[in-house]
Write a protein that binds this DNA or RNA. Structure first.
Length: 598
RNA sequence: GGACCAUUAGCUCAGCUGGAUAGAGCGCUGCCCUCCGAAGGCAGAGGUCAGAGGUUCGAAUCCUCUAUGGUCCGCCA
């Protein structure tokens, strides 16, 4: 069910030279090749399902391969026989210190410490580019997110969508995709008329008039200054005039102001879009017509009458003939109207045109990030893109679930009507963009998220933001102290250190964790799940803190060894490599690494 | 009536697209800190992976059904 095309979802796990698991997997497959050549194994075996992964239980070794089990059946051999033969050959490689057959036919490998020690050098050589992947293969991907209506400031729900979409875009970029970040401005529908009328009321108010906000207008305070700005622009020209006189102007004016507001909200969160795409710009250009003609030419547009929705019966429901898109041909449950009975487009029509345009722009992959309340829209959108691209361009739609806000452990609700509206600004102003972003990424996008204003600022192990930042800050502290002690700690010097000195279990544990980074990036990118990065960083920080804490008792594990600059440099190299990977990971999440904690 | 998502330790959640004895934090139990790196550390208890079938060497993971919770379901965006 992967959203990725076969070219990138394929089994070529050998691509990233920095991925130690990919390296060993290649060693395994080439070894198997030689076994085919010398007749140990039959010809024509498929090596694709073979994996080289870290075992769950570290006691099983550094890496495990399922090769023997996967090949047993097609080769017509016993798993153990294959495993034994493979093990004998693998141990002749300098990197493999032992290969044991275990369980049903697993081959557990232990790697020489030098393999892990070399990881630190690689990290120092590559810097934050370590782990940059090639799975993306340079494919063009469009990530659309936020896309909030331009009728007010962004609220908490948008914040999660913004953070998720942005981190996903960065992750895909890091994994080697050519990413475009895009925001679709819904400025073509009735809601911008409502906005215009609401602004007009504030405009009247700015002229000293008494106004009331009827149902169906936006009473929010944020429009007061827009009304005043309108007054500053047009004076009293629009006063006491009919709607036909001012509506269009005010709509444009208000929409621009709202987009300014939204842009500044996004900026406060550190989100920068490549493209703002206006729904309005679709009208009058023939694009909607072209998109629908494309569907019509494929026989997917017809006039018809839909069944009434079951379960819930709208009182005024009556059968009407509409122009429908045969989305059921592409996996939807019912066909969807593209034109209202009065001849106007439905909301769906410009959406189709917008995605048609994305396909035309040559993207290889589309991703839409929606709020969970748009879940009902997923199938029809996928159907549309499938039809428009003849199934060639996959569309993955990621839904972000609700954010439940807490303060002092007490939930508080937000309601547009009551004016208790928690905005993106409220959140960012209180806890800062870094904490906001990290916390919002500590949950899968499709799981509900609890956000407690107090807990996210706590400085303890419970708080992953703090815990990860603290690890980075500790490294910075080590580097400062090393400098005071006159030890050279530039990355080039550290990379040249004698890393074979890093032979303690705790050090090797941390090195192994660092080695997982490239592989994690691939997985996270393939599944479109940036939260994996956040969890990895938490684990990495945990291993680092663990090593640090051991230094309390075992002084030989401390990063700075007095009077022994060579050993110090090796250990600092490990610390610095950890900081580099943390910085790279935080970079994907859009969080600044801390140099010190106060 | 239907669709989508969720259901894993007392609580909040991971679980690397099918691997071995299912993990983390909190909470709980026990131990450890005069100082040198404790805004802590070490150890332990705690599970029918919602339930029932199925697929296969092997399932928390894939398929079917059921239960519970959330979101949504014609001309609103």
């Amino acid at each position: 069910m992967s959203a990725l095309p076969a070219v990138i979802d394929g089994r070529d796990k050998r691509k990233n030279p920095m991925n130690i698991f990919a390296q060993i997997r290649e060693l395994i497959t080439t070894t198997l090749d030689t076994m085919v050549q010398d007749g140990t194994l039959p010809d024509g075996l498929n090596f694709d399902p073979i994996t080289a992964e870290p075992p769950r239980d570290a006691a099983h070794g550094d890496m495990a391969t399922n090769a023997a089990m996967v090949l047993a059946k097609p080769a017509g051999m016993k798993p153990r026989d294959i495993a034994d033969a493979l093990a004998a050959k693998l141990t002749s490689d300098a990197r493999i210190t032992s290969a044991e057959v275990a369980g049903p036919g697993f081959l557990n490998l232990r790697l020489a410490p030098s393999v892990w020690q070399a990881v630190a050098k690689t990290v120092l050589d590559e810097g934050t580019a370590f782990g940059r992947g090639t799975v993306g293969n340079g494919l063009k991907v469009n990530v659309e997110y936020v896309s909030a209506n331009p009728t007010g400031p962004l609220h908490v729900g948008h914040t999660r969508g913004a953070v998720f979409g942005d981190a996903l875009a960065s992750l895909l970029d890091f994994a080697g995709f050519d990413v475009t970040r895009e925001y679709y401005i819904n400025d073509g529908g009735a809601q911008v008329d409502v906005l215009a009328r609401s602004v007009y009321l504030r405009y009247q108010e700015a002229h000293g008039q008494e106004v009331a906000f009827p149902d169906g207008t936006y009473p929010g305070d944020y429009l007061i200054e827009v009304g005043e700005a309108l007054k500053a622009k047009v004076g009293d020209d629009y006063l006491d005039k009919g709607e036909q006189y001012w509506l269009e102007d005010v709509r444009t004016f208000a929409t621009e102001k709202m987009m300014d507001l939204i842009r500044s909200d996004l900026k406060a969160l550190g989100v920068e879009m490549d493209v703002f795409y206006s729904e309005k710009s679709l009208y009058g250009t023939g694009l909607i017509e072209a998109a629908l003609k494309d569907l019509k030419d494929k026989g997917l547009i017809y006039e018809g009458v839909l069944e009434p929705p079951k379960g819930k019966k709208p009182e005024d429901w009556e059968p009407r003939e509409q122009t429908l898109f045969r989305s059921t041909d592409h996996g939807d449950d019912v066909d969807r109207p593209v034109m209202k009975s009065d001849g106007g487009w439905t909301y769906f029509a410009p959406d189709i045109a917008y995605h048609y345009d994305k396909v035309q722009r040559g993207f290889d992959l589309l991703i839409d990030v929606f709020g969970a309340d748009h879940g009902g829209y997923v199938k029809r959108m996928k159907a549309a893109v499938s039809a428009l691209s003849d199934g060639k361009v996959p569309l993955d739609i990621k839904l972000t679930q609700l954010v439940k806000l807490f303060k002092n452990g007490e939930p508080f609700k937000m309601s547009k009507r009551a004016g208790t509206f928690v905005t993106l600004r409220d959140v960012v102003d209180q806890v800062g963009p870094d904490v906001t972003r990290f916390v919002m990424l500590t949950r899968k996008n499709d799981a509900m998220l609890d956000f407690d204003f107090d807990k996210v600022l706590e400085q303890s192990r419970e708080n992953p933001v703090f815990y990860v930042q603290y690890a980075h800050a500790r490294v910075a502290s080590v580097l400062r102290k090393a400098a005071d002690a006159g030890i050279a700690t530039d990355d080039a010097t550290l990379a040249a250190a004698d890393l074979s000195l890093l032979d303690h279990d705790s050090e090797l544990l941390l090195l192994r964790k660092l080695a997982e980074w490239p592989r994690l990036v691939e997985t996270a990118a393939r599944t479109n799940e940036p939260h994996r990065v956040a969890f990895y960083l938490y684990e990495l920080a945990g291993d680092f803190h663990g090593l640090w804490n051991k230094g309390n008792e075992v002084t030989s594990l401390r990063f700075i060894q007095e009077g022994d600059p060579a050993t110090s440099q090796a250990k600092i190299a490990l610390a610095r490599a950890t900081a580099i990977v943390i910085a790279a990971g935080l970079g994907i999440l859009g969080v600044n690494p801390a140099e010190e904690m106060r």
